[in-house]
């Protein structure tokens, strides 16, 4: 019995590896959407600027609490198309920096098995206009049967991401933009 058969050892190893493999697969629960809604607002005395992106991609790993958000800047739509063009051409420079992203980790995981809403904090990095900023965002996670809904509301200071506002604009733009997001995630299949 004490005699170790190399063949047996190898087989055991293989079995162990497979077990590892399956366990990670079952543990790693991924939830995703590609139609998340991200809004932003800028209220100024002259004109309120608002835009919406309804093609935001979100991926959440419920095991680790890691979360990734990605959106094309060009998918932000404004009621005024000239504003939309200026936003892309002059402010966000979407040809140079086509995407905005956020990657982070939920600091304290909610109970995914219970339906209900939990306040959460997410530590992570926000990338806008090619400039990264470490951010802690607060929001809510609602678990409902097979869906997980994430909502958040935070501010983005233009100077944090080196977005310049020209001196000769007729419509004054606020230095801080309010962002609201609402993402409804469903189980992810690759």
């Amino acid at each position: 019995m004490t005699n170790i058969n190399p063949k047996n050892w190898c087989l055991n190893g293989l079995l162990f590896s497979f077990l590892c493999c399956f366990s990670t697969l079952t543990q790693a629960q991924l939830y995703a959407t590609s139609t998340g809604q991200t809004n932003f607002f800028s209220e100024t005395p002259a004109e309120n600027i608002r835009a919406v992106n309804t093609k935001t991609q979100v991926l959440l790993n419920t095991t680790t609490g890691e979360i990734a958000v990605r959106m094309n800047v060009r998918d932000f739509h404004f009621p005024n198309k000239l504003m939309e063009e200026h936003f892309n051409e002059n402010y966000l420079e979407s040809e140079k920096y086509p995407t905005s992203t956020f990657k982070g980790k939920i600091t304290k995981l909610p109970d995914w098995t219970q339906n209900g809403t939990t306040d959460v904090r997410v530590d992570g990095t926000l990338l806008i206009h090619g400039k990264e900023q470490p951010r802690t965002l607060t929001g809510k996670i609602s678990v409902q049967e097979k869906n997980i809904t994430l909502t958040t509301d935070f501010e983005v200071a233009l100077k944090d991401h080196q977005i310049d506002v020209p001196k000769i604009v007729f419509v004054k733009i606020a230095q801080v933009i309010d962002v609201k997001a609402n993402y409804i995630l469903t189980p992810y299949r690759r």
């Binding site: 590892c20 790693a28 995703a32 991609q57 991926l59 790993n61 095991t63 680790t64 979360i67 990657k103």
Partner: peptide
């Protein structure tokens, strides 16, 4: 080799790779 192969799914799901996964899906 077998171990590396099996560890792969776990690696895919780590940290930054969630973003890479989204980029692939875009």
């Amino acid at each position: 080799t077998v171990f590396l192969f099996c560890a792969l799914p776990a690696a895919v799901l780590a940290q930054d790779d969630l973003l890479d996964e989204l980029e692939k899906q875009a």
